[in-house]
Nucleic acid binder design. Structure first.
Length: 532
RNA sequence: ACGCCCAUGGCUCAGCUGGAUAGAGCAACGGACUUCUAAUCCGUAGGUCGCAGGUUCGAAUCCUGCUGGGCGUGCCA
């Protein structure tokens, strides 16, 4: 990638000069310029000013006389910036050699787990945000050469599944049998519970015995939900590589392993009938329950087994994308894994994806799966389709709280910026179709002034991608694509392509840009429609 | 009380391992379709970057304190 070469070589040129002339061993930074006239800059002179006891502008002037790599122009300007403009030749070279390949392999495996919830209800808006973010993040890792497994953890071993099954049975008794039943606070009473009861009513009637019915529902209703979720997510453009079920951990005997290990480390004790782990000894603020007085294991215990399993599966890294309501679990889990199981500190990374606030008539809505008053992913997709909803979630940083209502997303459908970007590709295709051009990309041998902004964005694309990956922030890519689309629409407006004196060149140029935007959109999980 | 996150034009957000005039989109106003799709383009207006200090050549960006909002601190999940 030429951009790295550009930075590295010029960095070396300045460093070498400073070392030879002034015996200074200093880290020279070359950054992307913040003003549009220039591409890169270094503020090294201002840092050297004190050391050399000279005005920064003098030093900059001196440095500007060096011969740099790949620059079209170099400027020394007050108070002491050294500005660079990348040469057209280098930009051209980059365009001609541009490939959007994800063939790069760095021989590292990462497991990215997201959405993961109790299999007791349909996919909702919050899952939609997690799905969008998780997919985009895994694509960034892939682009960087990682082997990525996207994983969905099914919490099917806990008490919620019991409650879920019981709720369905109650719904059955109420709806089908006409009995009067009371739902307790922690039971599920959404409409979909009644639908499931309806769905299984024949089988339930056939079984008759309550215990058998509950056992049946625990299995079948959960499977029903999971299949439904799978289908839903697939329609959303997301296919997980691994669906990992919590119950498999117990089947593998991990519970015994973990307990034995902790016991050997003398990290367990019983109190009031419950089993505690001594997290305080490991630097936590309190100890935590692993097994309740009822004999059931806590989620925390499940998480320990689960992440130990991930580690044993040989990943170099595991990333969890969790909601803010789980932030408390993150700390205690990491402390225990690192100190009691010797799992390296940077193995597990927990990203807290901020919450989605549901609004109705401008008021915040208190939602819960138990009350069944959430907005499902299905509803959203019916209203606005995948691209718009995806874009809505992905265009803001993961730390941002997102307000969501069916009204706002409908408004989004009228003027979502995703269309602005997609329209760029559609326009390019329109030209190619209209002019009957093939897909073959020929070598460009020049670069017009209007094309330069776009060429430069492609030039620094590798920087952007590594930055976005480092920050775990796919939204950065979206913002750049948006800017690129702006450049293009401007260019398109100013240039009549077909029939122009420069037709061959312009066609070639838009082919390259078109391929780029299509690949970028696809990378983040968006469609690139040829017509709109 | 403690911990995590957030605060940037009317609205939604960029910009944050310090840099040169704080950028987009929506909404408002004024223009541009006999043209390769106007889902577009051009122009106007709109900001004491929550407040107060500090660090320095330079702070929206880093540090401290405060204010306001969200979440967390369960033998809930």
């Amino acid at each position: 990638m030429f951009v790295n070469e550009f930075i590295k070589k010029n960095h070396a040129i300045i460093s070498k000069y400073l070392k030879e002339k002034y015996s200074l061993d200093i880290d020279v930074k070359i950054d992307k310029a913040t003003i549009p006239q220039w591409d890169f800059y270094s503020s090294i002179a201002m840092q050297l000013s004190k050391k050399l006891k000279r005005a920064p502008i003098d030093i900059t002037m001196e440095l500007s006389k060096l011969s740099f790599y790949g620059t079209g122009a170099v400027e020394a300007v007050k108070p002491g910036f050294l500005n660079f403009r990348v040469s057209k030749e280098l930009l051209l070279k980059n365009l001609n050699g541009f490939s959007f390949s994800t063939d790069k392999k760095i021989n590292k495996r990462v497991n990215i787990e997201f959405i993961s919830a109790n299999p007791t209800g349909p996919m909702n808006v919050v899952s939609g945000r997690a799905a969008t973010f998780g997919l985009a993040l895994s694509r960034l890792f892939q682009y960087d050469g990682w082997d990525v497994d996207k994983e969905y953890y099914i919490n099917n071993a806990g008490n919620q599944v019991n409650i879920f099954a019981n709720s369905i049975y109650k719904a059955y008794r109420e709806k089908v049998k006409g009995e009067k039943v009371e739902f307790s606070e922690d039971e599920y009473k959404g409409e979909y519970i009644y639908d499931i009861a309806e769905h299984f009513k024949d089988k339930i009637a056939e079984l008759g015995d309550e215990e058998e019915i509950i056992n049946f529902l625990k299995k079948k209703a959960v499977t029903l939900i999971i299949d439904d979720n799978k289908k839903m997510l697939s329609g959303f453009g997301l296919d997980f590589d691994i669906w990992f079920s919590e119950s498999s951990l117990y089947e593998k005997g991990y519970d015994k392993d973990v307990l034995l290990h902790l016991k050997e480390k003398d990290l367990l004790y019983e109190k009031d009938g419950a089993l505690f782990v001594k997290n305080t000894e490991l630097g936590d603020t309190q100890d935590w329950v692993l097994r309740k007085g009822t004999g059931e294991y806590t989620y925390f215990f499940g998480d320990i087994m689960y992440h130990l399993d991930k580690f044993r599966r040989g990943y170099d890294k595991a990333i969890n994308i969790w909601g803010p309501d789980h932030q408390g679990s993150a700390k205690r889990l990491k402390i225990l894994l690192e100190n009691a199981f010797d799992i390296p500190r940077d193995f597990l990374e927990i990203i807290i994806l901020q919450q989605v606030n549901l609004l109705k008539d401008g008021e915040k809505l208190k939602v819960s799966k138990r009350l069944g008053n959430f907005i499902t992913l299905e509803e959203i997709l019916e209203k606005v389709g995948t691209d718009v909803s995806r874009f809505y979630f992905l265009s803001r940083g993961y730390k941002q709280h997102v307000d969501f209502s069916l009204d706002t997303i409908e408004k989004e459908n009228e003027n979502s910026a995703v269309f602005y970007i997609q329209y760029m590709f559609a326009r390019i295709n329109g030209v190619l179709i209209k002019g009957n051009f093939d897909n073959k990309v020929e070598k460009l041998n020049k670069l017009g002034e209007n094309e330069r902004n776009m060429a430069f964005k492609l030039f620094i694309f590798p920087l952007l991608m590594s930055e976005a990956l480092r920050k775990r922030e796919p939204s950065m890519v979206i913002h750049t694509l948006n800017e690129l689309a702006g450049d293009f629409h401007h260019f398109y407006h100013d240039n009549k392509i077909i029939g122009s004196n420069d037709e061959e060149h312009l066609i070639n140029f838009i082919k390259i840009i078109g391929n780029f935007i299509k690949n970028s959109l696809n990378l983040l999980g968006f469609n690139a429609p040829e017509r709109m």
